[in-house]
Computed example of a mutant assay.
Amino acid sequence: MVERRRFSRIIYQAPATIRQGGTVVEANIQDLSLHGLLLSTDGNNAELNCDILADIEFTLPSSDIVISLVANLIGIQKNIIHASIDHIDIESIAHIKRLVELNVGNDDLLHRELEHLSDLGEHLSDMGEQL
């Protein structure tokens, strides 16, 4: 099977909260990248909707740093949720970048991913202007 990922995923386990409208689901992050997250739940995710953006929050272990982001729920299969980051503040992405940096161990790879993320943002912005 050909690997199609553009971003390195790191194994990162931490509790997270998913909020979508009035629905709140407690989850656990299984891995993350500069572009998205893989989360697991205890199966209490039936009310989540892939057509609606969700707010996801988690705290970095042994700190008071809270990562907040808005995500597209790409897929929900039983107790697994695939999410891509739609919007994230600069401080939160800086913390995720640092986590990836510490775990990837390859500065060149990290810089390529950051450039791709920047290119993706510019492309989406250009598409918005055309609409």
Rank of each mutant, 00 (worst) to 15 (best):
Q130L: 15
T41L: 06
N49T: 10
V70S: 01
I67M: 02
P61Y: 08
I52T: 10
V2P: 03
A94I: 10
H87W: 15
L60F: 10
I88P: 04
E129P: 04
R98I: 07
D55E: 10
G43K: 09
N44E: 14
N28D: 10
L117N: 10
D107I: 15
L37F: 11
A83C: 09
T23Y: 01
I76H: 03
N45H: 11
C50R: 09
I18V: 09
L37T: 02
A71F: 00
F7S: 04
G128A: 13
M127Y: 10
G75N: 12
V2K: 08
L53R: 04
L120K: 12
L109G: 02
L124P: 06
N28V: 12
I74W: 02
L48D: 00
Q20P: 03
L32W: 01
D126H: 14
L60A: 07
I90C: 11
D86T: 13
L110I: 15
L131V: 13
N79F: 10
V70I: 07
H35K: 13
T41E: 06
R4A: 09
S40R: 00
G36Y: 02
H35W: 09
G36H: 02
L124C: 11
D107K: 14
I10R: 01
A54H: 04
E3D: 15
Q13E: 15
I93P: 03
T17G: 04
N79A: 12
E3S: 07
V70Q: 06
V100H: 00
I67A: 00
S63F: 11
N45R: 06
V2E: 08
L114K: 09
D119V: 12
L117I: 12
H111Y: 12
G128F: 11
E91Y: 10
T59Y: 00
M127F: 11
L73Q: 02
G105V: 05
A27W: 02
T59H: 04
G105Y: 05
I96F: 03
T17F: 00
G22C: 06
H123N: 13
D119Y: 14
D107A: 15
D126K: 15
L48H: 04
I90G: 08
G75Y: 08
G121D: 11
E3C: 04
N44Q: 11
S118C: 12
H111M: 14
D86Y: 14
V2S: 06
